[in-house]
Amino acid sequence: MDHLAFHPGPLPPDLVGCAGLRHPSYGAIASFVGVVRNHHHGRTVTALHYQAHPELGIGVLRRLADQLRADHDSGLVATIVHATGDLVPGDAAIAIHLRAAHRRAALAACDQAIEAIKRDLPVWKRETYADGTTVWMEGS
């Protein structure tokens, strides 16, 4: 069963890691963990705030998981959790763990997932810099 969620604050180790997801039905787990950087375009980042639209976000993730199954492996199971609220450099902001029978499906699905999330997941990031200024970021 998929686990699609937003998590208040930095992601804890049990969501960043995938040890608890191992199961003999799945020969591969492809993971992506996004970490808050301490720099952006030459500026020192000291803090970061994520705001989300959870209702739309869960809908986006549910449809993404269905698309990944259609494109790569009908038995794929998705764990995708995005942090919200206040984070600092080094914190985990997003964890994607995709379980599939074989590695190629899992890896291709993970790449597709992060690109779709960057494009469609309704989350907005506000960076705070060492000089105290803040900027809302747009996707890259």
């Binding site: 996004g34 994520y50 989300a52 639209h53 209702e55 739309l56 869960i58 809908g59 986006v60 549910r62 449809r63 995005h82 902001a93 997003i94 992060i114 999330i117 960057k118 494009r119 469609d120 997941l121 309704p122 989350v123 907005w124 990031k125 809302w136 970021m137 747009e138 996707g139 890259s140």
Partner: peptide
């Protein structure tokens, strides 16, 4: 623009009471 848990494009469902405007996102 989004309505409920989905993006919308074009005509809104009749009697839509609430929409969300979704500026360019920056998650991940």
């Amino acid at each position: 623009v989004a309505v409920g848990d989905a993006f919308a494009d074009g005509p809104l469902p009749p009697h839509t009471a609430e929409v969300a405007v979704i500026p360019p996102v920056s998650g991940g």
